[in-house]
Amino acid sequence: MLLEITNLHARVEEKEILKGLNLSIKPGEVHAIMGPNGAGKSTLSNVIAGREGYEVTDGSILFEGQDLLALDPEVRACAGIFLGFQYPVEIPGVSNMTLLKAAVNARRKHNGESEIAPNDFLTWVREQAKKVKIDPKMLSRGVNEGFSGGEKKRNEILQMLVLQPTLMILDETDSGLDIDALKIVSDGINALRGPARSTVLVTHYQRLLDYVQPDFVHVLARGRIVRSGGPELAKELEEKGYGWLEAA
């Protein structure tokens, strides 16, 4: 098992949001998590990535068999977890390249490797940028500084391609994208799909799932996974909404 979440309870500002959530992900699988606004999807993503302020009160998360909750967020990232943010933040004056390089080298250091050679790094990043149609000029701009919504999301995918994580959690990466951008983003995700990597897609829309076919679809409501199924569940949700599940 790549990721194993058992009976997870988490609170934000004294309010319990996750109430006994279970989820198991095997290597190579793509899981879609859907659910109404405020159900706790971003909370789950943040808890996995280790954000401060999200207090786990019960349960466990194992990543490749190790206790994830004991690790700092940067260690989790170095271990292969990637969170694509719903709202990527701007970091003025810090170029995309600087951030990427620091991230790549942090990972290498974690693995006991030496720093990447500048030329290799440049070649590698440019290659990945091409895949998500990011202009090399954008690489020297400040992280997300003045980027459009679509550019920010493509930039998240670029970082993911550069870092080659083992577990990708994409929190509403498809929201606010036009159809062309959605296609680019989906291609990026699919490019990384492979037997050793797993993906969690947090989304509201069937649309993304047309491009990135999930193995499993889950509905998160009331702090729990209330229903799981195959791709057909997403279609059902698209037709019926979440009401019938919430009432259940």
Binding site: D72, E74, A102, A106, V143
Partner: peptide, 10 residues
């Protein structure tokens, strides 16, 4: 958090 989630220490 954005930086840390990319593996960069505090």
């Amino acid at each position: 958090f954005y930086c840390r989630a990319r593996g960069i220490g505090e």
